[in-house]
Design a protein around this nucleic acid. Sequence first.
DNA 1: CTTGTAAGTTAGCGTTGCTTACATATGTTT
DNA 2: AAACATATGTAAGCAACGCTAACTTACAAG
Lengths: 203, 203
Amino acid sequence: MADVKTSVHSKKSYHHGDLRGQLLEAVRELVEEHGPDGFSISQACKRAGVSTAAPYKHFKDRHEILRGVVLLAMDRLIAAMQEGADSYPPGDPNRIAAIGRAYIDFARAEPGIFRTMFGLTESHSEDPELTKAGASANGIVENVVGDYLELAPTHPQVKLRAYALWCFVHGHSFLLLDSKHIEGLTNTEENEMLALVGQAMLS
Amino acid sequence: MADVKTSVHSKKSYHHGDLRGQLLEAVRELVEEHGPDGFSISQACKRAGVSTAAPYKHFKDRHEILRGVVLLAMDRLIAAMQEGADSYPPGDPNRIAAIGRAYIDFARAEPGIFRTMFGLTESHSEDPELTKAGASANGIVENVVGDYLELAPTHPQVKLRAYALWCFVHGHSFLLLDSKHIEGLTNTEENEMLALVGQAMLS
DNA sequence: CTTGTAAGTTAGCGTTGCTTACATATGTTT
DNA sequence: AAACATATGTAAGCAACGCTAACTTACAAG
């Protein structure tokens, strides 16, 4: 029982090592296992090995915990998108498809978290950090589209096309999770569709 | 208090008024007011003027109530889409944009319900009625696209393009709710984008 | 050593989802 | 009409949950 926290330091300090981080991880797992609202603070506490009152030393309420989880997920998603983009040289149309694929792959790999990220009723247009993260993701797409069209990322046409692409990829990701996707859509067909839409949107 | 039930007559409602319907309506209102998970059975019971145990004579559990609310919303959405399509003659490209606009307008008009419809973690690919409703909505789009392309609605190319359009509209609707939409996107610009995407996807 | 503060604990309140047992209204049968 | 079966409501209560209050412990600085 006591060996859990010895991972951090030698002393058997029955003050926790990194409870905040462990809680975020526990909630992330629970959300992934049981859906956006299938988790409870109690369960997360049980996983972290603390009492149910402990989290309130680190988070104001349930919502703030979820916010933390979503922020970390945003970082992962943005990193994946950027990585996808960086796997092709600037101007290469494959860059755009790579970003879309990273987005879709993330939704497939972490459906619970993905749902949570875009399911928060409150705080989405309010929270500055979340807004900033969203803008960051949007910026990646705009940069790549701008490179391709050889226009500034702030150009209205670039922004509109980037947004249209985002709509498509986002919608597809969500429909995938709801199993509403077209029957028998193979991976190659999906890639073809991505390419087709990208092509259509950027010509 | 008692006059509520006198409205209905004999055959349909045995005992009191139409509690099932009243509960569905109460939950719909609550979901719209407080978000997909901001409602409680207790509150709905209070609105319907019954005890908290009454709903369980009509619904198995909380989830089944939500399912009923979502099914009714599906009917409304499908009706709106069909109405949008019917406002233009077959083959008219405006038909496609009209369906998309109906979809988006629904999301804007009933954001809480819209979120709920596509936020249910379980039962989406499982529930036959929901699947059927989803297929029905999909069918509307496929029919219109098929008419336009002068191909059968079951033609692979029709299905793929219809799906791509749906992805776009669905994604845009969701991003709208999350206030992630492009800044200063006017209605006319939105319509232009709809037309542009429709054009691009159907050429 | 004393003391302040950060980070845990226990105990408990109010609400929720749901169940069990009981009460009542309605239609059908006799 | 009386009895029954069924549909539909209530009352009471349990377990789990979010969150708070009050207390306790550990560490670190003076």
